[in-house]
Amino acid sequence: MNTVKVLGLVLAFALCYECIPIQLEELGEDIEDHPIECQNIAGKDNMDTYHKRQDCEIVFRNEYVKWSEKMLADESFVKDLEVLNITEDNSNQSEGGISRPKRSAGSNECPVFNEEYLKNNKAWKQRSISPWTFFITYKANRVPQRMVDTRCLCDGCIDIRTLTEDVDNLISVRLPLTVPVTKNSKLTTEEVHLGCTCAVAITEDA
């Protein structure tokens, strides 16, 4: 077989490669190796299924997502949490500096740091000068559909001298973390929040 025929066969094979049925096993796919959330994902063909499962694996092997899934499975953790159905991403960051995040329209209020409160609230997220709480976000077109997030309980921060909220000089801001998710079957990222911290407020004159 001369060189021209060999090159012709190689070219023909390359052109027809997409036509050859590819089994997931040939791609090194082992369904049991995937997180359980990804094992039943199916695409329009084997290659599409393979890529969708790879995207799903990226999401569910993320440490924050794994922690969120663990906490959501804990009934004692989620029983009193608000579930927020989100249709659009809202940003609490303004261009040029930190803006004051909106306080939730719920029962969460900035606590009064009196003796009774400090006696009954031992968790450090409750005793922080920028206290915060958990809630759950839900998006129908997102995987995972439910995720744990946090919100600040105060607009300002607790003044350690007076144990009252200072809204004139300080603001509570959420600590962001970018995590992988899929939206409409496409791998992307989304911002969640680990908690809150205290920052000096930016004024228009600053």
Results as ranks from 00 to 15, higher is better:
2 N>L: 12
4 V>Q: 10
4 V>K: 10
7 L>G: 04
9 L>A: 09
10 V>W: 11
12 A>F: 14
13 F>K: 07
13 F>W: 07
15 L>N: 00
16 C>S: 06
19 C>G: 02
19 C>T: 04
25 E>D: 13
25 E>H: 09
26 E>V: 05
27 L>W: 05
27 L>Q: 05
29 E>I: 09
31 I>S: 14
45 D>I: 15
45 D>E: 10
49 T>W: 06
49 T>E: 01
52 K>Y: 12
55 D>I: 07
56 C>E: 04
57 E>S: 04
58 I>M: 15
61 R>I: 15
61 R>Y: 14
61 R>A: 15
62 N>S: 14
64 Y>P: 06
67 W>F: 11
67 W>P: 03
69 E>W: 02
74 D>V: 05
76 S>G: 09
78 V>A: 12
78 V>I: 15
80 D>H: 15
80 D>V: 10
82 E>W: 11
87 T>E: 08
87 T>K: 11
92 N>P: 06
93 Q>E: 15
96 G>F: 10
98 I>N: 08
99 S>P: 03
99 S>F: 03
99 S>G: 05
100 R>H: 05
101 P>W: 04
107 S>T: 09
108 N>S: 12
109 E>T: 10
110 C>H: 08
112 V>K: 06
112 V>W: 03
115 E>K: 00
117 Y>M: 00
117 Y>R: 01
121 N>P: 07
121 N>V: 00
122 K>T: 13
124 W>K: 05
125 K>A: 09
128 S>W: 06
129 I>Y: 08
129 I>Q: 05
130 S>M: 07
131 P>S: 07
132 W>Q: 03
133 T>G: 09
135 F>A: 10
137 T>K: 01
137 T>C: 00
143 V>K: 03
144 P>C: 01
149 D>E: 11
151 R>K: 09
154 C>L: 04
156 G>N: 01
156 G>K: 00
158 I>R: 00
163 L>M: 13
164 T>V: 03
166 D>F: 04
168 D>N: 06
171 I>Y: 11
176 P>H: 06
184 N>A: 14
184 N>L: 13
187 L>S: 10
188 T>G: 08
190 E>L: 12
191 E>L: 15
191 E>P: 07
193 H>D: 14
195 G>Q: 05
196 C>E: 02
197 T>R: 02
198 C>T: 02
202 I>G: 03
206 A>K: 00
